[in-house]
């Protein structure tokens, strides 16, 4: 094969490769544009529409047959009415605030429990560690709904927890936990615990142990070494874990619906009710848009944190 021939082949290969690689990118890209990004534009549009007794139950409808005039009237009829309604009705404002509070408190609880488990995992003997980590992950694979459901039998008034406490005489009256915010906290902590444990465990596990010995050698007690060295070094894992719990917890629907009471206000539940029970699609869309606004800041912060982590590696 002559040099000219070889160069031709390389050129052909090069062209093939760029086409092939483009296809690699294009297929998932298009899919996400159509089925992830486009829906948000539609949600935004509908959130600006009005409720109507029709199918689909909102106006205006976009009618491309009318051409430019159609587009103009379409845009003219959009308004922020739904958002104004959300801001004025204390029910929605309270739902947002209470979601933030519930998600925040559960994140802190999950952090406290998750950190001590992650720490114990990272400090466990090498030959046990794989099995223990596997045991932490395993519940995550079993159905979320079933895990939340499992708590109903435990927490309700005649449930197993009350039976146990009454039996050993710690209480004389059954506790009311089911259908309260406490039950929601328990449910969120339980469901999201692996998401907190794993990132913290990952940072603790790769930490060089001689750092702790160095801290001790330089005169700090074990406890001081934990706060001066271990904790700051595990901070990236802590932050990642908190985001992974806080963000989905904010929009949680199943847990407040099954474990919470009628006074448990969470925005995911509000959206569900607005959509399925009241069939007010424009208002539900507006609720979703506001929730998205609340989430966008933590999501972007989370992305930045992840990128920083990857660069640091």
């Amino acid at each position: 094969m002559g040099p000219l021939e070889r160069r031709c082949r390389r050129l052909v290969n090069g062209m093939k490769s760029t086409f092939g690689q483009r296809l690699f990118v294009l297929l998932p890209y298009l899919w996400l544009l159509v089925l992830f990004l486009a829906p948000f534009v539609i949600v935004l549009k509908i959130s600006l529409s009005d409720l109507a007794v029709s199918r689909p139950p909102y106006t205006p409808q976009f009618d491309y047959r009318e051409g430019w005039a159609g587009i103009k009237t379409f845009f003219a009829e959009l308004d922020f009415e739904n958002f104004i309604f959300l801001a004025e009705d204390s029910l929605y404002v309270n739902a947002y605030l209470s979601s933030l509070k519930i998600a925040g408190v559960s994140t802190i609880l999950t952090l406290l429990i998750g950190y001590s488990i992650a720490y114990a995992l990272a400090r466990s003997p090498q030959r046990w560690r794989g099995t223990l980590v596997m045991l932490v992950i395993l519940p995550f694979w079993t159905s979320f709904l079933i895990r939340v459901y499992a708590w109903i039998g435990i927490l309700k008034t005649e449930g197993l927890l009350n039976q146990l406490l009454l039996h050993i005489g710690m209480i004389s009256e059954p506790l009311t936990i089911m259908n309260t915010n406490t039950a929601v906290y328990i449910g969120i902590v339980y469901s999201y615990l692996p998401f907190m444990i794993l990132p913290i465990y990952a940072t603790l596990e790769k930490m060089d142990e001689s750092l702790l010995e160095a801290a001790e050698d330089l005169g700090s007690s074990r406890l001081a070494a934990f706060f001066l060295v271990t904790l700051p070094l595990s901070l990236p894992g802590v932050i990642a874990g908190c985001f992974l719990v806080f963000i989905p917890a904010l929009g949680e629907f199943v847990i407040p619906d099954l474990l919470g009471g009628s006074d448990t206000l969470m925005i995911g539940k509000t959206l569900w009710v607005e959509f399925f029970s009241n069939r007010d699609w424009p208002l539900a869309s507006a609720v979703a848009i506001v929730l998205l606004m609340l989430l966008i800041v933590p999501i972007i912060l989370f992305q930045k944190q992840q990128e920083k982590q990857e660069l640091g590696r």
Partner: peptide, 10 residues
């Protein structure tokens, strides 16, 4: 990380 209610609705 997107809440499921939003993904579902959209």
């Amino acid at each position: 990380v997107m809440p499921e209610v939003i993904t579902g609705l959209s």
